[in-house]
Amino acid sequence: MSRQLIFVLIALSVAIPLVIKIGLPNEVTSEVMQVYEEIDRLGPGSVVLVSFDHEASSLPEVKPMAQAILRHCFAKRLKVIGLALLAEGTAIGEQILRETADEYEAEYGRDYVFLGFRPQFQAAILGMGEDIRRVFPEDYSNTPLIRLPIMRKVRDYRDIALIISVTDGDMPVWWVDYAVSRYHKGLAVAATAVMATSFYPFLSSGQMIGLLGGLKGAAEYEMLIEKPGMGQKGMDAQSVCHLVIILLVIAGNVGYFMRK
C-alpha cells in the first residue's frame, strides 16, 4: 500500500466524522474527575493560578483543555491568575483567558488577570512562593499589580487555592519540584496526550491531584461541565481514526506474515 493512500485514508477518517456526527460514547476517567472535583469544591472568590506552559504548535490539544477548565472556574466565580512560563504560550494564553472570561462577563483586574511571561521558570516558580509581585511587578499590559483588585490579597502561594499547568512539555515536573514539594500546593495538569504517560507516576504518588490528557481529557471535562466544545466535537474523528490505524496495523502484520 502506498504511503499516499494511507494519508488519504487517515484524512478521510478524520474529515468524515467531523462532517457527519456519529456520537460515539465517551467515559469520564478518574484522573479527569479528580481535577473537576478539586475545582468544584472551591468556594467563590478562591484564587486559581493557570500557567500556560506550551507552544503554539500544540494549540489544537491545549486550547480545548484550557477552555474547559477556565469555563468551570469562571462558572464557579473563582478568581483566575494566568501566566506563561514558555514565551510562545504568552499571547495564546492571554487570548484563551480573555475569550473565556468574556463568555462569563468576568471583569479584568477584578475576576482575572494575565501576568505575562517570565523566563527562567525555576526562578519564577520559586520566586512566586516568596512574593508574586517580585516576579511579576506588572501584568501583561504593564499595569502595576498593586493597582489590580484581584492581586491586592494575593501575595504568594498561600493565597492560591490551586495551580493548574496547561502544558505540552515537562513543565509540571518543575511545578512538582518547586511548588508542590516545597510549598505543598495542589497541582492539576492539563497535558498533551504525548506527555500524559510521563505524569502518571506523579499522579499515583499524589504529587498531582489530577490529569487531563489531550483532546480526550478535554472532551471528558466538557462532559462534566455540560458545555460541549472543541474536545467533544473532535472525539468522533479521534475514535474513527484510531480504528483505521488499528486496522492498518493488523493489515500490515497479516501482509508481513503472509509474505514470509
Binding site: S57, P60, T192, L215, C241
Partner: peptide, 11 residues
C-alpha cells in the same frame, strides 16, 4: 492520539 488531535485541529 496526540498527533491525530493536531490533525483534527487543522481539519
Amino acid at each position: 492520539m496526540s498527533r491525530i488531535s493536531l490533525l483534527i485541529g487543522r481539519m
